[in-house]
């Protein structure tokens, strides 16, 4: 395991940023957000960013194809450029797991080459959690926040940063920065993990489990009378979907440039009224149906199609950000209560 004094953190960032773009979670307007590192930029003290790290691979808007019209000819232009290599530093365990959930959607046949392109150029350096929030419930999905997944993993103590490469991408990064580090045993990391685990046991949601919804309960849950009251106050805003690291739905739209079309995709939300609007009309006409879709997808449909893996990583963003404080935990607990 490698060790670096926190006094040298800026040097480390500079070294990482030398041959590729580096993004770190930093403060902007009172909120944490991934920003492109530039000398002088400090890491945020917040546990996690408001927007998740999915933006790096699945950005809110992305050009797909352009059509240019000259007279009677239409030229089809691929607007894609090879993504530059980049490192995302400080990704939490929950967000790190979200990438494998997104991979299950975008990297299965037919492969989404836009996503794949970005994925291939990104190196994920994760950061173990020390002070989880009361809204965290990643452990409910088998995630260990004291030892996240990633191309490389870091632990930060009061005075040092510990680094461990995991994948070939992580090893490649390690080679570039190893000269800054010294070799160290893992005693400090072990101690920190034990301390964090004691906190995890005291988290209010640490006994929460989505297990009962993963079984053969689809129609029963779908037909639950509780959807009506659960969704009653929902504003249909889409905040929950946009801050969620695993929400993956998008819309494809055309922008008329006057002499051509720019076709782009942008995040969409199942909470929106035109989400399922098709030529024949809309199959989900009420907020109850739209609301139900979001939770059924994460808790029931996704595990049914992906060997029991849930479409939620317990990051707690929707718990913190929903304007009416309705969220996946309240929904799951209510439905599970009915199944008992």
């Amino acid at each position: 395991m490698l060790k670096l004094s926190l006094k040298k953190l800026d040097e480390l960032f500079a070294a990482m940023a030398q041959s590729q773009a580096l993004y770190i979670p930093a403060d902007n307007g009172g909120q944490a957000q991934y920003l492109r590192w530039a000398p002088g930029m400090k890491m945020t003290a917040a546990l996690n960013t408001v927007r998740s790290a999915k933006d790096f691979f699945f950005p809110q808007t992305e050009g797909l194809v352009n059509f240019k019209m000259t007279g009677k000819t239409i030229e089809v232009i691929d607007p894609r450029t090879e993504a530059e290599d980049f490192v995302v530093f400080g990704v939490r365990a929950c967000d790190a797991r979200s990438f494998s959930i997104l991979d299950k959607v975008f990297l299965v046949d037919p492969v989404d080459t836009y996503y794949q392109n970005r994925r291939e150029h990104g190196t994920i350096v994760t950061m173990a959690c020390r002070q989880p929030e009361e809204t965290c419930f990643c452990t409910s999905f088998g995630i260990d926040p004291t030892h996240p997944e990633g191309d490389a993993v870091c632990w930060m103590t009061d005075d040092a940063l510990y680094f461990e490469a995991v994948t070939p991408k992580g090893e490649a990064l390690k080679e570039k920065i190893a000269s800054l580090f010294e070799e160290s045993d893992d005693a400090a990391v072990k101690a920190q993990q034990a301390e964090t685990k004691a906190v995890l046991d005291r988290l209010p949601l640490h006994t929460f489990t989505a297990e009962p919804l993963g079984g053969d309960v689809l129609m029963k849950v779908f037909d639950s009378p509780s959807w009506k009251s659960l969704s009653e106050a929902c504003l249909g805003c889409g905040t929950c979907t946009f801050v969620c690291p695993t929400c993956q739905c998008y819309d494809v739209r055309d922008f008329d440039t006057g002499n051509g079309i720019q076709r782009f995709r942008c995040w969409d939300s199942c909470m929106y009224s035109d989400f399922t609007l098709m030529a024949h009309g809309n199959s989900r006409n009420s907020q109850v149906e739209r609301f139900r879709q979001r939770f059924m997808h994460k808790l029931v449909y996704f595990p049914a199609n992906n060997d029991g893996e849930y479409g939620c990583v317990g990051c707690g963003r929707c718990l913190a950000k929903c304007p009416i404080s309705m969220n996946i935990v309240k929904v799951a607990k209510c439905l599970e209560g009915e199944l008992k």
Binding site: G29, Q31, Q60, L235, C237, G238, T241, F242, S269
Partner: peptide
């Protein structure tokens, strides 16, 4: 610009 560039167009402001 520094404020509005953070907007993610979730529509919460409008819907509430």
């Amino acid at each position: 610009r520094s404020q509005l560039s953070r907007c993610i167009r979730c529509n919460a402001c409008r819907n509430v």
